[in-house]
Structures are given as structure tokens and as C-alpha cells.
């Protein structure tokens, strides 16, 4: 039971981070560069999962993704399956839940690159998309790494929302945080300790790695 939960968590975290890098990068670019009056409200929306309890997200996702919900209805019509209690539903939930952890570091990295290099590239004849991939992205590598690692670690630690949307189905939606909760409730403190200590150690190592990389790349700024 525990091993399959660890495996599901790793899969969920990997897929979530991939999806978030794909949709989070353009969003982060827009947030870093836009002068639109929508920028501030969108920034706030992205940050919402930081302050909301995950039960709020889980509660609304259960309604949105349910077979009668606005998103879930389309999914049922298209695939014949329900989104709730499925791995896909967990991915959608986790993408929202971990959104700020991926978007914000990339946004800040893009902002740090600034307009200067991009305008220089443009004056040398580079199209905006070329400048984006050959100037902005490499210069923001540190932000991307931080985003990927934090998004991954945060998804591993997810509990309330996945529990509500996933329904704890073994081999499908029972992630490691839920397995730990069940072990504690069943008074299996040994198994709970093993999983908890593993998660604790992993998260610590991940954060040490992120901070080390951030220091090495920015010796003057952060020391």
C-alpha cells in the first residue's frame, strides 16, 4: 500500500510540474512584462492557493469537476469517464494547487532579465520569439529550476485537496500524504514514521539543493 502511494505521488508531482512549466511560462512572461490593468488581479489569482486552505480548493474542484459540474460535464461527454476520483482529476487539482510555486519564481526571473537584453536582441534583428528562447529563457534558468523543484515538492506534500477530489483509491488516487494519514488513524505509527521521515528528508534535501544553487549562481546578491 505504501509503495504504490509513493509511486502515485511521484507520478503526480512529475506530470503536474510538466503541465505547469508549459502553461506557467507564458503566464509568468505576461505577468513580468504586461502593463495591462488585469496584471494585478491575475497576480493575486495566481497567489490564491498560497493563502487558501486546501479544503477550499478541494471543495470547489469537487463541484467543478463532478459529472454535473461545468468542467466535469464536458469531460464525461467527451471521454465517458468522470474527472473526480481519477488521476487526471488529481493532476488538474494539483496544477491549481501548485500554480504559485511554479509561476512566481519564473515571473521573478523574467523580471530580473529586464527589457534591456530583449531590446538589444530586437535591434539586432531577432524576432521576439527568438529573443525569448535564446535570451530570456537561458538567463532565467535558475528561476525555472527553483520553480520545477518547488512545484514538485509542494505537490508531494499535498493532502486536503487531493483527498477530497481523489477519494483515496489505491493505485489510482491514494497519494503518500493520504497513506500517512490512514496509517496514523489506524494506529500504525511505524509505517507512518517511515513515510513521514522519508518525506521530511526528501523535502529538506530538495530545499537545500535549491538554496545551494541559488547561492552559487548569485554570489554577490545573496551572500
Amino acid at each position: 500500500m505504501s509503495l504504490s502511494a509513493v509511486w502515485i505521488s511521484l507520478q503526480l508531482a512529475s506530470v503536474t510540474v510538466l503541465v505547469l512549466l508549459v502553461i506557467g511560462t507564458p503566464l509568468a512572461w505576461w505577468l513580468a512584462n504586461s502593463r495591462s490593468r488585469w496584471r494585478v488581479p491575475v497576480d493575486a489569482l495566481v497567489a490564491l492557493p498560497l493563502v487558501l486552505p486546501s479544503t477550499v480548493l478541494g471543495f470547489y474542484m469537487l463541484i467543478l469537476l463532478g459529472p454535473a459540474g461545468p468542467i466535469g460535464r464536458f469531460w464525461v461527454a467527451a471521454t465517458g469517464e468522470t474527472l473526480t476520483f481519477s488521476f487526471t482529476g488529481l493532476v488538474i487539482t494539483s496544477v491549481l494547487y501548485s500554480l504559485p510555486f511554479v509561476v512566481q519564481p519564473i515571473r521573478d526571473a523574467f523580471a530580473a532579465v529586464g527589457r534591456g537584453p530583449m531590446e538589444a536582441a530586437a535591434s539586432l534583428g531577432a524576432r521576439p520569439i527568438d529573443a525569448f528562447f535564446s535570451i530570456a529563457c537561458p538567463q532565467s534558468a535558475r528561476g525555472f529550476l527553483t520553480a520545477a523543484v518547488l512545484g514538485f515538492a509542494h505537490t508531494l506534500g499535498e493532502f486536503g485537496a487531493v483527498l477530497m477530489v481523489g477519494g483515496s483509491i489505491p493505485g489510482e488516487t491514494r497519494v503518500v500524504a493520504i497513506a500517512i494519514y490512514e496509517h496514523v488513524e489506524m494506529l500504525e505509527y511505524g509505517a507512518a514514521h517511515t513515510l513521514s521521515a522519508g518525506l521530511l528528508l526528501f523535502s529538506f534535501v530538495v530545499l537545500v539543493a535549491v538554496y545551494t544553487v541559488n547561492r552559487a549562481r548569485h554570489p554577490v546578491l545573496l551572500r
Binding site: 469537487l62 463532478g66 454535473a68 459540474g69 468522470t82 473526480t84 477530497m164
Partner: peptide
Amino acid sequence: RALHYLATGN
């Protein structure tokens, strides 16, 4: 929670 799944049509 089981009843909540029913109430939300899931």
C-alpha cells in the same frame, strides 16, 4: 465525506 460526494453529484 461519503455523503458529501453524493450531495455534489459525484
